[in-house]
Amino acid sequence: MEQVAKRAGVGKLTLYRRWSSKEELLAQAIEQEVSADISPSAADVQALAPREIVERLLPAAAETAASPGFRALVARILGSAVSHPELMEIYWRHYILPRRELAAALLRRAQQDGLVAADADLDVVIDMMAGAVTYRVLQPDPPDAAEMLRYLKAVYRQAGLYPAGP
């Protein structure tokens, strides 16, 4: 916290007024690093067709997922889960959980539209999609943005959220 305060030109007290712990500060810094353009808004989930939302978000998601910064961020977060469980808990609560809730809402809409099986376990579907992307970006030869877009389309197609075709 001391180094962050010094770099920002403020006192540590100023930081602690805004963030109760270094984990809270770090979780928000992580959120700032990842573009908000890769998650649907709650309003979009209610107003737009699931496939329209996915088609709109995939290019930005592919750019983000293919970036070296995102790759490093994912590796660091996963790597710190055991040694810093409080960071992972805060990151989960502030970043992952809200996005999982939006993804679940999107998948429920897709179920209503007949795109996703009515008996699909949405937590499993979300885990499969997120796990596929995480696995892909952590490979030794990660994809560039074009390949990541192709891969994301395939992942979303398997989940029923992207239309079949080339």
Rank of each mutant, 00 (worst) to 15 (best):
P143I: 01
S21Q: 08
L15I: 15
I96L: 15
E23K: 05
R51V: 05
P59W: 07
E23V: 12
L73N: 06
R99V: 11
D123F: 04
Y135S: 02
V74A: 13
L122V: 07
R99I: 11
T134H: 08
L15R: 09
P163N: 00
E101Y: 05
A103Y: 05
A130D: 13
A130H: 09
T134C: 09
A62K: 06
R108S: 02
E55H: 06
V116W: 08
A145L: 05
P85W: 04
I96N: 09
I30S: 08
S39R: 08
I30G: 03
A105T: 11
A36L: 12
V54F: 06
A132E: 03
D113G: 05
R157C: 04
Q139K: 01
R7G: 00
L58G: 03
Y91M: 06
P98E: 07
Y156E: 10
Y95P: 01
A49Y: 01
L161V: 03
L73I: 05
V34A: 06
E24F: 09
G11A: 09
S20C: 02
S21A: 08
I90P: 00
H94Y: 13
P68I: 01
L115T: 02
R136C: 06
L78I: 03
Y95I: 12
I90Y: 04
A132R: 03
R109A: 12
R18Y: 10
L149N: 07
V74E: 07
L149C: 00
R157Y: 02
P68L: 02
V133T: 14
V74L: 12
G79M: 03
D141F: 00
P163V: 01
R108C: 01
P85F: 03
G131W: 11
Y156W: 15
A43H: 13
K6P: 00
L58P: 04
A120M: 13
A104P: 00
R108Y: 07
A110E: 08
Y135D: 01
D44V: 02
A159S: 10
S21K: 07
A159C: 09
R17I: 02
I126E: 08
L97Q: 15
I30D: 04
R109H: 12
R99Y: 11
L115F: 03
A117V: 02
A120Q: 13
V10G: 03
L149A: 11
T134Y: 09
L13F: 09
A81N: 01
A27H: 05
D141T: 09
D113A: 15
V133R: 10
P166A: 13
T14K: 12
L73H: 04
Q158N: 12
D44S: 14
E55K: 14
A118C: 01
M129N: 02
A118P: 00
S35P: 07
A81G: 03
E24W: 10
P68M: 01
R99Q: 15
E23M: 10
L138H: 00
H84F: 04
V116D: 04
A72Q: 13
Y95C: 14
W92T: 14
I96G: 04
L73M: 11
R136N: 04
Y151L: 14
W92G: 11
V124P: 00
R100V: 15
Q111P: 05
Y151F: 15
R17M: 08
L149E: 15
V34M: 12
L57M: 07
L102G: 10
